[in-house]
């Protein structure tokens, strides 16, 4: 059993604390918009603090990842602990950029940050044991595959954050919280924009993964557990985009579809490789 306080852990705890504070400040800030007379200007002064805290968290995760990299000699690509920390970093980074550039999505932090916390709590239950780097991972396509996948998941997360607001707004008590935001139809549009971007990166992830699989295991596609699950996820996204173009899907149904796609992606990423013996067979 390894010592729990290995080099990366203090940074990890501080990074998670920064995300926790960002979550708290975001919720308090959005909650404050409830008061005030209709038509009164709403203070959004808390937003820079949220952005600052998320950014601080991202930087701390980078340090944590670097410490671990130095300690065990390879990047965060192998075990669940590494994958989760790496995603906490990249999801935070992409979300921070979106938060900064697109003020309209900022209240989504009250949905996105708690989702991030699911990963955070999960990581806290895991031992930071050193993983073994498989010989087939010395491949540049791994980087492309992982990088595209990170954008895919991040865009799904942002889409889900906005979809979450659409659904929260269904509760009359929560309506005042989101009065700075445009109508549901517009939010729906913005959420789906992110899902369209997600489709591009999902496609790129599958392509880069197939090239890597061809190098690593001598076949580009073999319907192993992870491949099948990620293909189903891609198809689900394509089908949802089509359904939305073909039928007049109510926005809240669209919002549920977005969250379902994200949840499916979540299980594909963090579930399949670890409950299926056969995922990415060559690893063993």
């Amino acid at each position: 059993m390894e010592d729990k306080m290995v080099a990366e852990m203090p940074w990890l705890y501080t990074a998670l604390t920064a995300y926790a504070l960002a979550t708290f400040v975001a919720i308090m800030g959005v909650a404050r918009t409830r008061g005030g007379a209709a038509g009164a200007a709403v203070s959004r002064s808390y937003e820079p603090l949220v952005l600052g805290l998320i950014t601080a968290g991202v930087v701390l995760f980078v340090i944590s990842l670097a410490e671990r990299w130095i300690r065990i000699g390879h990047g965060p690509f192998v075990n669940l602990f590494e994958l989760l920390v790496s995603q906490l970093f990249s999801l935070g980074l992409v979300y921070a950029v979106a938060y900064w550039r697109l003020p309209v999505i900022r209240p989504s932090a009250i949905v996105v940050m708690p989702m991030m916390w699911v990963l955070g709590l999960w990581v806290l239950t895991l031992e930071p044991v050193a993983s073994v780097y498989p010989p087939t991972y010395h491949n540049k396509w791994l980087w492309a595959h992982v990088g595209f996948g990170k954008f895919f998941l991040a865009f799904c997360l942002i889409g889900s954050g906005i979809a979450g607001i659409i659904l929260l707004r269904k509760l009359p008590r929560l309506v005042p919280l989101f009065r700075t935001l445009p109508p549901d139809e517009v939010l729906d549009h913005v959420a789906w924009r992110f899902m369209l971007l997600a489709l591009i990166f999902d496609s790129l992830m599958l392509i880069a993964g197939a090239v890597w699989a061809q190098d690593a295991w001598g076949r580009y596609w073999a319907w192993d557990a992870l491949e099948t699950s990620s293909f189903l996820n891609w198809l689900m996204l394509g089908a949802a985009i089509h359904a939305r173009l073909t039928y007049r899907i109510p926005v809240h149904v669209g919002a549920i579809a977005i969250i379902a796609i994200f949840v499916f992606a979540f299980f594909t990423y963090f579930g399949t490789p670890f409950y299926s013996e056969a995922a990415h067979k060559g690893v063993i």
Binding site: G39, A40, V104, R179, T180, L181, P182, H189, V190, I200
Partner: peptide, 26 residues
């Protein structure tokens, strides 16, 4: 194919700017 999709979205997004938040009615 991905490039084509990228071009399609690029055009689509360029035609319709991202919405901005509204400061409580004002």
């Amino acid at each position: 194919g991905v490039l084509g999709l990228g071009i399609h979205f690029w055009k689509k997004f360029a035609n319709h700017p991202w919405p901005q938040p509204d400061d409580g009615g004002k």
